[in-house]
Computed example of a mutant assay.
Amino acid sequence: MKTAIHPEYHPVVFRDAATGTEFLTRSTATSENTVDWSDGNVYPLIVVDVTSDSHPFWTGAQRVMDTEGRVERFNRRYGRK
């Protein structure tokens, strides 16, 4: 791997804008906003719109597509050949 071409990889706190849930991970993203974490350190804070805590797929609020009804409607409209 070449040296001095990769961005700095450091701990960052991400906050879900919808739920307020925060989690500490590592990222190359930076921010001027900071947050005091429970371990006593100060980390950059990045606020994101959607995380697994608020995304409909992960929360179970996902819409279910009625694929059978769509196929039946297509067959009624255009007929089976």
Rank of each mutant, 00 (worst) to 15 (best):
Ser52Phe: 11
Pro56Lys: 04
Trp37Glu: 04
Tyr78Leu: 10
Arg76Met: 09
Thr28Asn: 10
Asp36Thr: 12
Glu8Thr: 14
Ser52Ile: 10
Ala29Gln: 11
Asp53Ile: 00
Met65Pro: 00
Pro11Val: 06
Glu32Ala: 14
Ser54Pro: 03
Glu22Gln: 13
Glu68Trp: 07
Met65Trp: 05
Val50Glu: 13
Val48Asp: 09
His10Pro: 09
Thr59Ala: 05
Ser27Phe: 00
Arg73Asp: 14
Val13Phe: 00
Pro7Cys: 07
Ile46Lys: 09
Met1Asp: 14
Met1Ala: 15
Trp37Lys: 02
Phe57Cys: 08
Pro11His: 07
Val13Arg: 00
Ala29Cys: 08
Leu45Gly: 04
Phe23Ser: 09
Asn41Thr: 12
Asp53Met: 07
Phe14Ala: 05
Val13Gly: 00
Tyr43Gly: 03
Glu22Val: 03
Asp49Val: 08
Thr59Lys: 08
Glu32Tyr: 07
His10Glu: 11
Glu22Ile: 01
His55Met: 05
Arg73Leu: 12
Asn33Ser: 15
Asp36Trp: 03
Glu68Asp: 14
Arg63Lys: 13
Thr51Arg: 02
Ala61Val: 01
Asp49Tyr: 05
Gly60Ala: 06
Arg76Pro: 01
Thr34Lys: 13
His10Gln: 14
Lys2Ser: 15
Phe57Trp: 10
Val71Arg: 14
Val42Ser: 13
Phe23Val: 02
Asn75Ala: 15
Ser52Val: 13
Leu24Trp: 01
Tyr9Met: 09
Asn41Pro: 00
Lys81Met: 09
Trp58Glu: 14
Thr19Tyr: 02
Ser54Ala: 09
Met1Trp: 11
Ser27Cys: 06
Arg63Phe: 06
Pro7Arg: 08
Asp16Gly: 02
Ala18Cys: 04
Gly20Glu: 05
Pro7Lys: 08
Val71Phe: 09
Val47Pro: 03
Val42Pro: 00
Leu45Cys: 08
Asp49Gly: 12
Thr67Lys: 10
Thr21Tyr: 05
Val35Tyr: 01
Pro7Met: 05
Ala17Asp: 11
Phe14Ile: 12
Thr67Ser: 12
Ile5Arg: 14
Phe14Gly: 03
Val71Gly: 04
Ser31Met: 04
Ala18His: 05
His6Val: 14
Trp37Cys: 06
Ile46Ser: 06
Asn75Pro: 00
Leu45Phe: 04
Ile46Leu: 13
Ser27Arg: 02
Thr51His: 03
Asp49Asn: 14
Arg15Lys: 15
Lys81Asp: 12
Thr21Trp: 01
Asn75Lys: 15
Ala18Gln: 13
Val64Phe: 03
Ala4Gln: 15
Arg63Ile: 07
Pro11Asn: 08
Asn41Tyr: 09
Asn75Asp: 13
Asp66Gly: 10
Asp36Val: 09
Leu24Tyr: 00
Arg77Val: 07
Val48Met: 10
Ile46Met: 08
Pro11Ile: 05
Gly40Val: 06
Asp66Ile: 07
Gly79Tyr: 03
